[in-house]
Design a protein around this nucleic acid. Structure first.
Length: 548
RNA sequence: GCCCCGGUAGCUCAGUGGAUAGAGCACGCCCCUCCUAAGGGCGGGGUCGCAGGUUCGAUUCCUGCCCGGGGCGCCA
């Protein structure tokens, strides 16, 4: 069956072309009314066109309804309020979504619109100067989910992690570790003013002494050791969190491969650079920046901004016409700079390239008090702690359940609690519950789709069933919108609503009734609901348990 | 001072150029002889930060202001 909504939109557009030919190209969009009493879909097209057409909105709506071509999916079209047209679907049209879900299964909701288009999502990209903390966890959950969302729209997704393993912070790390190592050996050591003060630095120093001996003269060896140790620890944390990257891109390779020098040369050749007070500047103000930026400092070293541009040149040249960088909002100022650098190179990169998702800070509450996060002072909550305490699923769900640009208060006690205050259980429980019904009916969960395929769906007509059917039908659009907006929180919201409707239904009616036709229809609806819950949770990389 | 983002129920947060602004938690009452009560039902609770403007219609768009966060480095 064709999509009832799309068909109705076409029919309404035809009516518009007949009634107000001058506005035949008006956008006709159906939306889901807030209230079920207003039907399956509503259009405000009569309100929008009333003024330009010089007609009373209600009369215009009447005329549009009268000119509506016959549509088998449509039960009724009523005028309401100021001039809304409310459409009610024939039951069969509403029920058809169940058959579609059962036919498409894991693919239900996905779309091939962007099939074959490569996209890169860069996220986490933490400096290897300490363990990953809760802010990185938010980024990991967001980036991974955004990657999944884009994949549902057909994109060929690459997840990349950029390692800043070449800058002053790394040198600082090495010096910090050496100072702690000297202390451990009982030697006097001056700890750097802005050094890394976390306990893990002392542990690193001890490991170094244990494995590589007591000679601390080779700062380069200490640097390599510390970076390798911290990287592997980060890898373990990410693994525990269930996040995988397709590639780790090392900042140092930009230097060793000559890409930094090459980028500088190209920028100079572009004519957008100038020398001032011994430094090399890029005229980023030509591209919307509020001041020009230094590329090469008077001491000859590059600012971080040059490898950043060089790195993004590689993204473009590696064929990623679409790139999303997930970063903390504290990196906001880099956005204009990186884009300006790419524009200056005049290599055909669009002005808005790359896209950014900037997320706000995470405040961690424990025992009713804020836990301060600071790598340097060493008090913070690591990804590992969170996952160990609250479980991967709860942490994932929590961290993507808010808009990226709103600040997030992570209540550790709440995430740890296995209580009904924890929203992830609510959604997972809906899934476990319907699996339980299937078991009760003697159906293996794995065979369920097979079992209900071809069921007569006609009995599904109660308000609870209508609500569930409508919600299922909305999933593909919700998914597409969330992917378009890089907004996984739209999926958590959707899943909570779907779960709520399932729980309501579960309490209101029984699935395992004696009437075989009704029973089969309801089980089909349950199986379809379970399928969509699974699909949505999969986008967030969260498990859909069959039992809880 | 300038730039970006938030401000919606007691708390944590969704939402939208339209029809009576929602959910969870918290609070009160009710529902397991019956598919998992990790659930459901009913109820109280709001000047959508403030003030203007655009619009047939603004919580949504525009401007100004207030509050909170972040950024304004030859740091990353």
């Amino acid at each position: 069956m064709t999509d009832p909504k799309a068909e109705l939109e076409r029919a309404l557009a035809q009516a518009v072309a007949v009634v107000v030919p001058a506005h035949a190209d008006a956008a006709v969009v159906l939306e889901r009314p807030k209230q079920a009493a207003h039907g399956d879909y509503a259009s405000n097209v009569a309100l929008v066109l009333a003024k330009p057409a010089g007609r009373n909105p209600r009369q215009l709506a009447e005329a549009l309804v009268a000119s509506l071509p016959a549509c088998p999916h449509l039960l009724s079209a009523d005028i309401a309020g100021a001039g809304f047209i409310n459409f009610r679907l024939a039951p069969a049209a509403r029920q058809a979504i169940v058959a579609r879900v059962l036919a498409e299964r894991d693919a239900f909701g996905t779309s091939p619109v962007h099939a074959g288009q490569p996209v890169m999502v860069e996220f986490v990209s933490a400096n290897p100067t300490g363990p990953l903390h809760v802010g990185h966890a938010r980024q990991a959950a967001l980036g991974d989910a955004i990657g999944n969302l884009l994949a549902t729209q057909g994109y060929a997704v690459t997840r990349e992690y950029y390692y800043n393993d070449a800058g002053a912070q790394i040198q600082n790390l090495a010096i910090s570790v050496r100072a702690r190592a000297k202390e451990l050996l009982g030697e006097s050591a001056t700890f750097p003013e802005d050094g890394y003060r976390g306990d893990y630095i002392r542990e690193l120093a001890q490991h170094y002494l244990d494995r590589l001996g007591h000679d601390l003269s080779d700062i380069e060896a200490i640097r390599r050791f510390a970076v390798a140790e911290l990287r592997s620890e980060q890898d373990r944390d990410l693994l525990a969190f269930g996040v995988r990257f397709d590639r780790y891109y090392l900042e140092s390779s930009l230097y060793t491969d000559g890409l930094v020098e090459q980028t500088v040369a190209r920028l100079v050749a572009s004519g957008k650079t100038y020398e001032h007070e011994g430094a090399l500047w890029l005229r980023t103000t030509d591209f919307g920046d509020d001041k020009d930026r230094v590329m090469r400092k008077s001491d000859g070293a590059y600012t971080y901004f040059v490898p950043d541009v060089a790195y993004h040149v590689t993204k473009w040249e590696r064929g990623y016409a679409k790139v999303i960088n997930v970063q903390g909002a504290d990196h906001h100022s880099t956005v204009t700079r990186v884009r300006a650098g790419l524009q200056a190179l005049q290599m055909g990169v669009p002005a808005g390239y790359p896209d950014y998702v900037l997320h706000k800070m995470v405040t961690v509450m424990r025992g009713g008090e804020e836990v301060k996060i600071s790598k340097r002072s060493g008090s913070y909550v690591t990804v590992r702690e969170l996952v160990d305490d609250a479980g991967r699923d709860a942490v994932r769900f929590f961290l993507v359940s808010r808009k990226a640009d709103s600040e997030f208060v992570f209540d550790i006690d709440l995430a740890r609690s296995r209580s009904d205050e924890n929203p992830v259980y609510y959604v997972q429980y809906a899934h476990a519950r319907l699996c339980s019904v299937l078991r009760q009916a003697g159906i293996a969960v794995a065979d369920a789709v097979q079992f209900v395929q071809g069921a007569d769906l006609a009995p599904l007509q109660s308000p609870y069933e209508d609500a569930l059917l409508r919600r299922l039908a909305d999933y593909p659009e919700e998914l597409a919108a969330a992917a378009r907006d890089f907004a996984p929180h739209q999926i958590t919201t959707y899943l909570k609503e779907l779960a709520r409707e399932f729980h309501s239904y579960y309490n209101a009616e029984r699935f395992l009734v004696d009437d075989v036709v009704v029973r089969r229809a309801r089980l089909a609806l349950a199986v379809a609901s379970g399928q969509v819950l699974r699909n949505g949770l999969a986008v967030l990389s969260i498990a859909a348990p069959e039992e809880m």
